[in-house]
Design a protein around this nucleic acid. Structure first.
Lengths: 199, 199
DNA sequence: GCTATAATTCAACATACGATGAATTACGGG
DNA sequence: CCCGTAATTCATCGTATGTTGAATTATAGC
């Protein structure tokens, strides 16, 4: 059995396996509890190889979460949708994309809870992929506040369903969630101005 | 300077200081990153004293989060509130109680993200202090599902505001949040049946 | 085909953690 | 006033972590 040294085959698949293992391990355990050794073991690789490719743990985390969704996805999805369907559309798109136990979104949420850089990543991600495009589409003065409320509700559903494991939500299907949450998002987006959020 | 041995004064205040330090440290850093040594340092105490009083880290965590709010608080607060004000009432009560950076709720949320026992604690807490009393008050078939949606939104606002630090929500006052979120909760609670959540 | 370079593992490091046991000091009941 | 007991610290252990450097093997360019 060959133990040390370079092994035959394409190195890029090894690298991809590391990223895959990192994603699912971070998603399952969060940033601090996901150890490099465990990720390496999952990827069938020595710890040092991770350092070789990614330098340190934080860089690996960043690399593993870099391109989950790009902002144009949401923007494109909103294209040509009638105003009164936009809430359901956002709910369905976001939830079906993100409501999976080992999705990068859940991973980021887990990590963000205990790790400041991860929280910054998630904040930026929410800004770029949710708040920015939604606010731009709405094109009203308090658009960002409305979009932030939408984002907060989606985050809450994901948190309650996948992290806390609230029974009533964990038992619900995506369709049922969309039916329940969609109209709420709709209301946040198109209800005529209420007392209002911050300046 | 006295270094070792028992020190003068009431030991119960020392114990209380440990619990206080534990709460704020867990709230700030989450379960894994909040080290016993740091908590001890914050409390001005040696690590071993924590072990003496609480046994191990998990027991300390449980002790530090044991009685933040009891179920009757919510139940009592809902007493005699007219049906169309209940959403705002829950929003105001929950948010003013929980929307503080070092509140036990935020601490539990942080810990729940990466620690299964903490997630179980939070799940039970949500069940007992939110879903149970609200569902009982509603007294309709899908009461628990409605209450779970309320809880998820509240969790989302807390998560987005205090953990992720979404600007638009962090900048908003409690009153503004209540104005925005209250009607949504109201809708979840009293809107005539929609397509529905799980069985 | 040779060789420089990249890929990969092994071994080890310094550090920090949670836990434990022994020692020292103050308190409280008789 | 004395003595058992509780409160508190010190010292240390075993373990696990992230990181680093040296050694070994396959690949790719000439």
């Amino acid at each position: 059995m060959t133990r040390t040294g370079r092994r035959p085959g394409d190195p890029s698949v090894t690298k991809a396996e590391i990223l895959h293992a990192a994603r699912s391990t971070f998603a399952e355990l969060g940033y601090e509890s996901a150890t490099l050794r465990r990720i390496a073991a999952t990827a069938g690789v020595d710890v040092a190889l991770i350092a070789h490719y990614f330098g340190n743990k934080e860089s690996l985390f960043v690399a593993a979460h870099d391109l989950p969704i790009n902002p144009s996805d949401i923007a494109g999805m909103l294209d040509g949708v009638s105003e009164d369907e936009v809430g359901e559309r956002i709910a369905r798109f976001s939830l079906s994309m993100l409501a999976v136990d080992d999705s990068p979104a859940i991973s980021l949420m887990r990590a963000a809870s205990t790790n400041a850089p991860a929280a910054a990543m998630l904040r930026e991600f929410i800004d770029r992929t949710l708040i920015d495009p939604i606010a731009e589409m709405l094109d009203v003065e308090d658009g960002r506040e409305r979009a932030a409320l939408v984002a907060s509700h989606l985050l809450g559903v994901l948190f309650a369903r996948h992290i806390v494991g609230v029974r009533e939500l964990a038992a619900a299907s995506i369709d049922e969630l969309v039916d329940a949450v969609g109209p709420t998002l709709q209301r946040y987006l198109t209800e005529p101005a209420w007392s209002g959020t911050a300046t």
